[in-house]
């Protein structure tokens, strides 16, 4: 049962019930939809970038607590970041969720470390990763909607 409490930590539940930056960003320079066709989770990610810096970021959509909290934390982390630094954060989150036991840069992760409990629930990892894949595709400028399947 400890696994369940590790998964649904208070901070995560708080992000789920009061997601940060849950809004459309207008105007925006970047927009991307992420979709998990098997479970129906849908994330719409908006970003406004000026001089290679994320000056605003927001999201809409519906999904489970894991995907919602993960996206909420993503927006807090990415707000104000330089575009060139985003990939490093993505790689660190990816490592945390897909390589249990790997050494992590906790300074880089901050609150995102709260997502690590997901690793005990393999079928839910894609819930946590959906918005991150969406972000990566958004900065890579891919035109296809993101799917985690």
């Amino acid at each position: 049962m400890s696994g369940l409490n590790d998964l649904y930590q208070e901070i995560l539940l708080e992000h789920n019930s009061k997601p940060r930056n849950f809004r459309v960003v207008e105007p925006h320079t970047h927009y991307k939809e992420g979709f998990n066709p098997l479970c129906g989770d849908r994330i719409l990610l908006y970003m406004d970038v000026k001089d290679d810096v994320v000056v605003d970021i927001g999201f809409q959509g519906s999904g489970c607590a894991i995907s919602r909290a993960s996206t909420s934390m993503l927006t807090e982390t990415i707000m104000g970041q330089k575009i060139e630094d985003i990939n490093q954060v993505f790689e660190e989150v990816h490592k945390m969720l897909t390589e249990p036991g790997a050494e992590l840069d906790v300074n880089l992760l901050g609150d995102l470390e709260m997502l690590s409990g997901v690793t005990d629930f393999p079928v839910r990892i894609k819930c946590a990763m959906l918005s991150w894949h969406t972000l990566k595709s958004l900065i890579d400028n891919s035109s296809e909607p993101v799917s985690t399947e």
Partner: peptide
Amino acid sequence: SAHPHDIGTILDT
């Protein structure tokens, strides 16, 4: 209060 996937995970435990 809870999305169906979260319900499913909790029920599974």
